[in-house]
Amino acid sequence: MQTALRTSLSETELASRASFAPHARIVREERPQQAIGLPLSIRGLRKSFGSNEVLRGIDLHIPAGQFVAIVGKSGCGKSTLLRLIAGLEKANAGSISFGQDVQAEDIRVMFQEPRLLPWARVLANVEVGLGRDRASADAHARAERALTEVGLADKRDQWPSVLSGGQKQRVALGRALVSRPRVLAFDEPLGALDALTRISMQRLLERVWRDQGFTAILVTHDVAEAVALADRVLVIEEGRIAHDVVVNAGRPRERGSAELASLEASILSHLLSAEDRT
């Protein structure tokens, strides 16, 4: 219901309404808060692979619609945490709850590799993201809308092999967005991209998150990226949350501002001191 409302009101419609009815402006400003995002509660989460205990008791609450970044050195368990949240692995102990029953289509993951089907055209790849709604009559229209959102409407009939790395990743984002997920988990989605493409992808991620209001969980090794995108940065060390840092900077964020730079420096020093101890 909410989804339908959201998509039926375009930006211009909202803007024109705002000039007639004052309360419409409030609706627009409150969008990220009254979002379709789901809250997330994690209690006592543990996971081991054989004798190797990767997660040693994670307790975490993420309010609906928050953008959370998870950083830590490689092997600290951040990707495992993300895979558990996305339901790709089973925990040994503890629980993850979204506050209500969720469907598979409500939670989507985006990986470092685009994982597109090379033998399917761009539009068909996006349609894969519809899950069980693939066969529905409006599948094409929804996929086209998602492609437009990531700025690739003109590539709909191309094979993935002719796209650049950044474009492939945008198709993967479109595929993740097409089912209007309520939680979107990113596993280093920009790790393989060059610096410029990264920045434009970061802006795109921020924009779609602000537009759609899903709860975003971003695993990254790039602290600058975490600080630029997230409301909150979690530092994971040895399978536990070692630091929980709130980023209060306004949006859209100004890259390279002193405020973000000092936050980045303090998180990096946490990470480096942990490195020295081991």
């Binding site: 996305a86 993951v109 089907l117 993201g129 069980r132």
Partner: peptide, 22 residues
């Protein structure tokens, strides 16, 4: 590519679809 198979499963493909499409 096992990553494509995992992707297919995440996006809810049945065994038949997984075979036919991936």
């Amino acid at each position: 590519d096992p990553q494509l198979i995992e992707m297919g499963r995440i996006y809810g493909m049945t065994d038949g679809e997984l075979f036919r499409r991936v």
